[in-house]
């Protein structure tokens, strides 16, 4: 009886831990939208845009998390996204392969560039940031050459690309495939086992015979694949793109920080990849909410919600890095209150 009570308590705690952030984001943004005279999901198209944004940020977050969680910070994320998306768009549109073809080609192209980045990283043994910066410069330059001098890449009157991006079913399939892939590869293969060993103890893992170099190259390749797919989806969302260079792609990766930090908390209660999905779900509620609010409130501009998003990130980070202290503080206060109540009751008696 006690054991099943404990188990039930454990499951309840887990359930709360998993759901709390998505629920808070949903509730807060719904209230904020209602206060602004709109609603979070005003119509069918809001759901379409939500799933589109979710798929994009999920692919991006998966890709960034692979390297970031092993201490490798790769600046070339945005550049890989851009080059994969551009190559995918140009080949798919020219050959009539459509959006699915575009995403596949984009994923493969960026996987190749990711692999090159990884090979440079293991061969030169330089800090990942240096490799990332160098590759950003090179890849952006290559994009400029591919596009004949940064000419716009588009789909003419073919609206299938945009329609694909707002197809809830298609986006759900993409997300499920990505999620399944990440769970299987990182949790049920030797590669994933080695990855997690290296994540927590690099020296010990290498000493036990884990091939750190091949593991790193595969990580970069898989990340590249995710970025290419995300880049292709991004281009579908705007029905084309006009590339820019001079480090303009670096800012792209920062949009997945908040979902990844959300997942840092949720991941204590469930599988890491599912935690990332839930983090992205929470983040996308905020994004859609901002869009709905700014539609109604003219002064709620993109600069204002950038600041708000940054504040949310900082506050959440503060909580995440000081969770124990905060809990102690809460418990201590409760403890002191109980003591006071007890001594007050004793005095009365």
């Amino acid at each position: 009886m006690t054991i099943s009570k404990n188990k039930a308590g454990e499951y309840a705690k887990r359930g709360v831990g998993i759901a709390i952030i998505p629920v808070i984001c949903l509730v807060v943004m719904s209230i904020a939208c209602a206060a602004s005279g709109t609603s979070l999901f005003a119509s069918q198209s809001s759901f379409q845009l939500y799933f589109r944004g979710l798929a994009y940020v999920l692919l991006l977050s998966f890709g960034v998390s692979i390297n970031m969680h092993t201490g490798r910070f790769d600046f070339s994320t945005g550049a890989q996204m851009l080059i994969g998306g551009v190559i995918g768009a140009k080949i798919a549109y020219a050959s009539g392969l459509g959006p699915v073809g575009m995403i596949l080609i984009g994923a493969v192209s960026s996987a190749i560039f990711g692999c090159i980045t990884g090979l440079l990283y293991v061969a030169l043994r330089l800090p990942p940031m240096i490799i990332g910066l160098g590759m950003t410069l090179v890849l952006e330059g290559v994009v400029a050459i591919i596009t004949g001098g940064l000419k716009p890449v588009g789909f003419g009157t073919d609206s299938s690309y945009y329609s694909f991006a707002v197809n809830i079913g298609a986006m759900t399939v993409i997300m499920l495939i990505a999620l399944a892939f990440m769970i299987v590869v990182f949790h049920y293969t030797k590669f994933g086992y080695d990855y997690r060993a290296l994540q927590t103890g690099q020296k010990i893992s290498v000493n036990t015979g884990i091939n750190e170099k091949s593991n790193a190259v595969i990580c970069y390749t898989i990340s590249g694949m995710m970025f290419g797919a995300a880049g292709a989806l991004s281009i579908c969302s705007t029905n084309g793109v006009t590339p820019t260079i001079n480090f303009s792609t670096i800012a792209t990766m920062f949009s997945c920080f908040l979902p990844l930090f959300f997942s840092g908390f949720i991941g204590k209660y469930c599988n890491k990849q599912i935690a990332i999905l839930l983090g992205c779900i929470s983040y996308e509620f905020i994004q859609i909410g901002f869009g709905q609010i700014s539609f109604k409130v003219a002064s709620f501009t993109s600069d204002v919600y950038k600041v708000i998003e940054a504040v949310i990130l900082v506050v959440f980070l503060i909580y995440l890095n000081n969770e124990n202290k905060i809990i102690e503080l809460v418990k201590l206060k409760n403890f002191i209150k109980k003591r006071k109540d007890k001594s007050a009751a004793t005095e009365e008696q």
Binding site: R125, L126, P128, G134, L137, G141, Q202, V206, E212, N246
Partner: peptide
């Protein structure tokens, strides 16, 4: 930009030759 990127990596690599770490940098 491409030349800068390549040179950047090459220069850093040359500079780090004398102090190559055994394990991959993080």
């Amino acid at each position: 930009q491409i030349v800068k990127g390549i040179l950047f990596v090459v220069v850093v690599f040359l500079f780090s030759i004398a102090n190559r770490p055994k394990m991959l940098e993080r």
